[in-house]
Design a protein around this nucleic acid. Structure first.
Length: 346
DNA sequence: TCTGGGGTCCTTAATCGT
DNA sequence: TCTGACGATTAAGGACCC
């Protein structure tokens, strides 16, 4: 979906259409969640501090985040997507992969879908069609908004050859910087870079991944993914140094998190806290217990023990709690002769 | 008035059992 | 009893994505 949160907001604020608009959190430390295309012309973009965005565009209109509403509108979109009856993989509220293998005329089906979304929901979507998720993703981004790009792997490798490596998903600021230092300025440079050298410098996995990506090779299946962890975290408007206050906040977060786990009917074995200090140093501390839990008392007690064992040395900017390890623990070890598997812990 | 919140995946290191 | 290989698990940090 194109500028999804803003687009949804503009449906109820039609007088703002055509103006530079952002959806952003409140408070002095908020960042931009989504910017309208008009705002982007000023250089405003996602993840930018709102303070900076306002400096770039003083007339910027700032709307608060209303996730519950975006979730509802997203469900309306996703219902229409899923009516195609093909395997899907939601990537977020506003992105979804479809496995169109075996679908007779995928281009026609997808343009009909986009038309439906436009006419029934008054929202615009962009589509990328390709032989794998990587090509589809980059193609869908290429002509936003309302783009519709169909490419083979070879066409993608040629069409984006002149673009910076940063265009490829998985290559972020750090990797782009390291590649730049190696003289790799474009995807073409990356395509030509010896894979052995990439492996030597970035490691087996990442190195080979960079080479494959540059050539738009990808074999990740379209498959729905299970939730692995759930967390609650909060950046304070003002840094907090008082340990008692931090503990009160942690208790609230633990209880909120437990409620969400219960609602989703999941439970986990690993409980972790996250602390970000005023100088932006961040640490996490985790403890894995012998059973899965969603119990507020347990989560609160473990989180509190982790905080007390690791008291922040400076004022705290962010505090959070996480529960992970949802999946069933499975003994991979082959059974010894005569061993009774049924006596093993779950 | 620098830098959110909710996630995933990978790497590295330590530890433990067979 | 010691040693090494190896696989699994845990912990911590970091890169990346929307």
């Amino acid at each position: 979906m194109d500028a999804f949160y803003v687009a949804v907001e503009l449906l109820r604020r039609p007088e703002l259409v055509g103006k530079p608009v952002i959806v952003a959190g409140g408070g002095p430390r908020a960042v931009v969640t989504t910017a309208s295309y008009e705002a982007r012309r000023y250089g405003v973009g996602s993840a930018m501090p709102v303070s900076q965005a306002m400096r770039l565009c003083p007339d910027l209109i700032r709307l608060p985040v209303d996730m519950a509403h975006y979730r509802e509108r997203s469900a309306e979109v996703m219902r229409r997507v899923n009516e195609l009856g093909v395997p899907t993989e939601p990537a977020s509220l506003d992105e979804i992969y479809l496995d169109l293998n075996g679908v007779p005329d995928p281009v026609a089906r997808m343009s009909a879908l986009v038309r439906r979304i436009r006419e029934e929901l008054r929202l615009t979507a962009s589509v990328g069609i390709g032989p794998n998720k990587l090509v589809a993703k980059v193609a869908s981004d290429a002509e936003k908004p309302a783009g519709f790009v169909v490419l083979t792997r070879e066409q993608a490798a040629e069409r984006f050859a002149g673009a910076p490596p940063r265009l490829l998903p998985g290559i972020g600021p750090k990797t782009a910087e390291r590649l730049d230092a190696l003289g790799v300025k474009t995807i073409r440079d990356l395509q030509a870079f010896p894979v052995g050298e990439l492996v030597r410098r970035f490691g087996e996995h990442h190195g080979r991944g960079l080479h494959d990506r540059a050539h738009f090779r990808s074999d990740a299946p379209v498959a729905r993914r299970e939730l692995k962890s759930r967390s609650v975290e909060e950046t304070f408007d003002f840094d907090i140094a008082d340990p008692a206050e931090l503990e009160r906040i942690l208790v609230r977060q633990a209880e909120r998190l437990a409620a969400e786990l219960a609602q989703r009917k999941v439970a986990g074995r690993t409980i972790a806290i996250k602390v970000r200090l005023d100088d932006w140093t961040t640490y996490t501390r985790a403890k894995t217990i012998d059973h899965r839990t969603a119990d507020p008392e347990t989560i609160r007690t473990v989180a509190m023990a982790l905080l007390r064992a690791n008291p922040p040395a400076r004022p705290v900017r962010l505090l959070g709690v996480r529960v992970g390890g949802f999946e069933e623990r499975r003994a991979e070890r082959p059974a010894a002769e005569g061993e009774n598997l049924s006596l093993l812990p779950a």
